[in-house]
Structure formats: C-alpha cells, structure tokens
Nucleic acid binder design. Sequence first.
DNA 1: TAAAATTAAATTGTGAACAATATACCTTCC
DNA 2: GGAAGGTATATTGTTCACAATTTAATTTTA
Lengths: 165, 165
Amino acid sequence: MRRRLHRPASPITLRIAMSADTAARLDHQLCFALYAASNAMTRLYRDRLEPLGLTYPQYLVMLVLWEQDGLTVKAIGERLYLDSGTLTPMLKRMEEAGLLERRRSRDDERQVEIRLTARGRALEREVAALQRDLFCLLPLGPEDMARLRTELRGLAARLRGLDSL
Amino acid sequence: MRRRLHRPASPITLRIAMSADTAARLDHQLCFALYAASNAMTRLYRDRLEPLGLTYPQYLVMLVLWEQDGLTVKAIGERLYLDSGTLTPMLKRMEEAGLLERRRSRDDERQVEIRLTARGRALEREVAALQRDLFCLLPLGPEDMARLRTELRGLAARLRGLDSL
DNA sequence: TAAAATTAAATTGTGAACAATATACCTTCC
DNA sequence: GGAAGGTATATTGTTCACAATTTAATTTTA
C-alpha cells in the first residue's frame, strides 16, 4: 500500500489530482479574473461617464451609433451581443434623456430604427476627450493593449461558439 | 499649405490623429473586449450551473466559502470585490435555497457570519465535475489560460488603483 | 466615561442582463 | 389569397451591481 504513494503519477492521475486540489480555488479561475477585471473597468468608466449622463452600457450603444447611425435594435444587439430584453428599456431611457430617437421602420414595421439626436451626436467630442484621458491613465502600452484586446475577442468568439453545445 | 499634408507626422501628431480617427470605434476598445468576453463566459456558466441551482455570482460565493467557511459578509466582499448591497440579498437567496446560513457574530454584532450547510458543502463535488468539463471545452491550453488570467488580475488590480484618482 | 467618529450590514432606488413569453408583422408555399 | 412558419421588438419577472442612505454596534478621543 505504501508503495503506491511513492509511485510517480501518470499524466492523467496528475491532471485529476491537480483538479481536485486547485480547480475550485477562486484565484485559479479564468472566469473570475475576467469577471473582476470587467467589473473594475466598468467602475472606472462609470465615474467618468456620469457627468456626461451616460452609463457604461449606454456608452457602448453610443459607440455603435457614432460608427453607424440609423441601425435597428437587432443590429445594435448583434454588435454588442445583447438582446432586446436588455436593449429595449435601455434605448427608451436614452430616448428620455434626449440622446436618440426610436422610430418604427416604414419598410418593415417589426423593426425599430434608432437615430441619434443632435445632442447625441454632439456628445462624441466630450467622449473623445474622456477616452484620451483614460488611454493615458491605463496601465498598458498600446501594444500590450492591442494584444490583450485581440486575445479577449478571440476567447469571446470561441465561448460564444461553445454556448450552443 | 499643401506641403503640410505631405510632411511626415511627428509621433505626437500621429497619436492624436489616431485617437480622433479610431479611438471611438467599438472594436478598438479594450473595455468592450473585456465586457463582451465576461458576458460570454457568464452565459457559458449559466446554463451549466442552472441544474445545480446556482447563478454565476452565487457560484463565486461558493468558491470563496469552500476555500474558507465562516467568513463575514465583508470578507466575502473583499474577496470578490462586491459590496453589501450586492451580497446581502444574494446571500439571503442562497440561505433560502438551503446552501448556507447567516448568523450575527457573537464577538461583534455588526458582523454577519456565513456558514455552509451540508448541502452547500456537498455541492462542491458536482461543481468540480462541471469545472473539469469546462476546462476541457475551453479553447485555451493551461499555459495560455494561466498567462491570460495573470494578465487580467494585474490589469484589474491596477484599474482598482486608478479608481481612487 | 460620554460624545464623536468609524465600521458592518441592511435598505432603497436605478439600471443592466437575460429567460420566457407575447404581439405584431412579414414571408412562404400550397 | 390564406394558413403556417419565421422574425423583430416588447413585456414580465428574476437576479445582479452599485450609489446613497440608514441603523446598529464598536472604537476613539476629549
């Protein structure tokens, strides 16, 4: 019996032993690193977006619309990977705030087209200043940032692929 | 006038030009890559945790408590970077579900100590199986995963540092 | 030691995020 | 052209995430 304890473990045994010992630990989880970093990033933006009257997810919607105005709810959702249950109330709040307008498409009345107001368009300049500030504050060089961004986008794409399995 | 257009830009001019042209674009934002990846990861866990009666944030709380039982709400919050406004209702739901118990500390009655029930402790085995499944599914080798995790933890720590600025 | 300051949870209110469902509209195909 | 099937958005209900405030308990300090 004692000899078994000293026998070198096979790769498979080793893998299982590692899992049992360490898999559950919070700090070994990629998912938690991702979760905590995302929360921290959102918090950083929150304070800086608040004077502009934007929440962080609303800021993402504005980024989409500044790139291309007049998109449907569905198109915005495809860009941000969010569904109508998230976007509909959010877009209504943004309409209330005078940032955009929602209008049923004439061609297809199922669709709702989102168009920026002058005020929504004007906000782009203020946000650009904020982005420059944050870019300088961020503790990453442009290359590291680009690499990490690419890595995360790849990961997210593959995670989305797994979702259907 | 025309000559200026052809003059090679200084590094600073270049940086500013890049910001104006591209900074606003969604796909250039590290924050969005992080946000989208975190959402995708949470979605992946959601479906697999649902049969165990856990949400993703509840799963994180369980990871903390499996490491060390009997922590206060504050201690759990420090581990997960969440505040009492998030944790209090969540822990109440978990108590309802029979996963843990909440009890005022005898030493300091401001504090509430969280202790796993037998059921809560038993869940660790089922979660370990789930973790092994996901580990195999994840489109990353162990080294890449460790590197990305370390990078994200460093980023999060530095973002938290900036928060006070 | 009594008042002031600090701390830990809880509470309240807002805004995501999403599942499940409903509703209205469009397209197809017989 | 009309039923069947699919699509786009909206709605409802649950669960985070957090700011701001409240309550109760502890610690500090005057």
